[in-house]
Each structure stands twice: as C-alpha cells, then as structure tokens.
Design a protein around this nucleic acid. Structure first.
Lengths: 142, 142
DNA sequence: CCCTTTCGTTTACATCTGTAGTCTATATTC
DNA sequence: GAATATAGACTACAGATGTAAACGAAAGGG
C-alpha cells in the first residue's frame, strides 16, 4: 500500500466502510486531490484486495479486508525487519519519547518490559552484514 | 531511500565506508543482485546525497552523509506520523513484544515510561479523519 | 606500450505511484 | 421519455524503483 493509498484506507477504516462519494468529500477536506485521483486510488486498493466492494444499485460501498491495527502492525514490523538489530532499542526509545500514550498503554508497556527484563541479554548484535562463517571481525560488525 | 538502497546503506554504515567492490561482494552474499544493479544503486545514493565519495586514484570510497541511527529514527518517525494516533500505543506494544532488547535499553525505556506516566492522558483520540468544526460524531471518530 | 581487467557512467525497460482527464452506462429529474 | 448528473472504468503520463546490459576510460600486467 502506497502512502496515498494509506490515507484513503484511514478514512474507510475509521468510518467502517464508505461510498466513494464519502471518501472523496472527506479526503478533499485534507488534501487537494481531484475526484479522479481518489477514484483511481480506490480502484487500486480494490485491485490489491485491500478493499472489497458491495454493490448497492450502481454504486459501491467499500470495506476494508484487513483491520487498521493489523495493517499498522504489519507495516511497522516489516520496516523494523530491515533495520539494524542493535539499534532497534534506541529507535523505540526515540519513538517513546516523542509520542504521547494513554496511561493504560503505558501500564501495558511497563508490565511487558518487566517481563522481558527477566530474559533480556546484556547486548544485541548487529545484523547489518550478511553472516560469514570465517569471520575475521568481531563484536558489533559481524 | 528505497528498500534496495537501504540494504546498500546498511553495509556502508556498518563498515564505516567502503569501495564499490566491497559493497558488491558483501551484498552478493545476501542478495542475488548483479554487479550492475549494485552499481546503479550506489550511483543513485550518491545522487540523493546519502553517500559522498572520496576519489582514490580512479575508484571511489563511499561514505554515508547521515548516521544509521539518524536515518532509522527518521524513517520510523515518518512512518508513525501517518498512522492512527489512537493505535500507536498498541503498535509499539506489539513491537516490544516481538523484539529482543538489551537490559540496558529496557532500563532506559522503563525510566522514560515512568516519567511519561506522570503526565499521560487517560486516552488518546483518533486523528484519521480530517478535523471538522461542526462535527456530529463524537469520541474516537472525530 | 598494448592488452585486459576494472570501475564508474549511460542507457534500458518494466512496474509502481501520484496525479488527473475522458468516456460510458446508469440514475434521477422534469 | 429526454435531459442531465453521476459513478465507476479506461486512458495518460511523468517520476521513482528494481533490475541489468553495454560502454568508455583508466590502471595494472607483461
């Protein structure tokens, strides 16, 4: 899903399904996109099976085929999969410090962290280079 | 930076600069890319000013113009900027539970969280729809 | 000093993405 | 029923990306 498509999905997720008309008017409050553009994006999302349609007369009612949470977890995990292992901790630190969370979410994070602490290693190794059997380097870079 | 380019950068970051030869051989241990492909990617990274070159004779020694940590923080923050506010907490929960962190990182997260807890709100509102003044909906979806 | 290897540059091309105009068939209105 | 408004489909096109071959100039070998 491309960034523009993601914007469209957010509307449909939040409204739990919508007609193209609705998506168009909501989207146009936010972005200067033409009707056409939004229709194209809706069409592509259907092709990609991110949306399914229910025909009502000649119009479509668009519904997501995946929940917003699942989609968010997916993109975020995929991004993290390609980042240096050793530095993921500090990246999350950075995120934590720049965002605002509800007390409930913080509590959950805290208990998860105490749990993780019990089995946490002293350090994490970098996985940026392909692993080589006869590696002459040590520590971080192998 | 595209995903393929990111792969190249990881190598150069980790080795703190390299010749194209080195990038090519390391990369080929991991991906089935032709020499040409890797050269193209290096060229594009230079165009995009992600890499700078030092000429040594007629070859180049490629060096990053941004640190890996800075780049990671940037992409991750940009991704989060376009995700539903209300659900960022659970996304991070999901990340925390699927990754392994060093005890040191966990400690830092814990102290950051206790600090944040003091001013944390009871709930976070969704920002998926453009904000409308005369909003007839309430709670999560407005 | 020629030959070959090597490295960077140029060119190539399909697919995806952002952006949008046009067309067609169907609804809706008078 | 004819005129008009619509919704979705089709077409378009430039720029980014993945992928790679071909080319040219310089370096190293003999």
């Amino acid at each position: 899903m491309s960034p523009a498509e993601w914007e469209i999905m957010r509307i449909i997720w939040t409204k739990k399904g919508s007609s193209s008309k609705e998506v168009i008017s909501l989207m146009q409050l936010k972005r200067n996109w033409s009707e056409s553009t939004i229709k194209t994006l809706l069409g592509r999302l259907v092709e990609k099976k991110m949306l399914q349609t229910n025909k009502e007369g000649r119009r479509f009612f668009y519904q997501p085929t995946i929940t917003e949470s699942d989609a968010m977890n997916k993109v975020v995990s995929e991004l993290f999969d390609h980042l240096c292992n050793m530095k993921k901790g500090s990246v999350i630190l950075n995120l934590l410090s720049s965002l605002t969370f509800s007390r409930e979410d913080i509590k959950k994070m805290q208990s998860l962290l105490s749990e993780k602490m019990e089995t946490a290693p002293a350090s994490i190794t970098c996985d940026c280079l392909p692993h080589m059997e006869n590696c002459s380097m040590h520590e971080k870079n192998c």
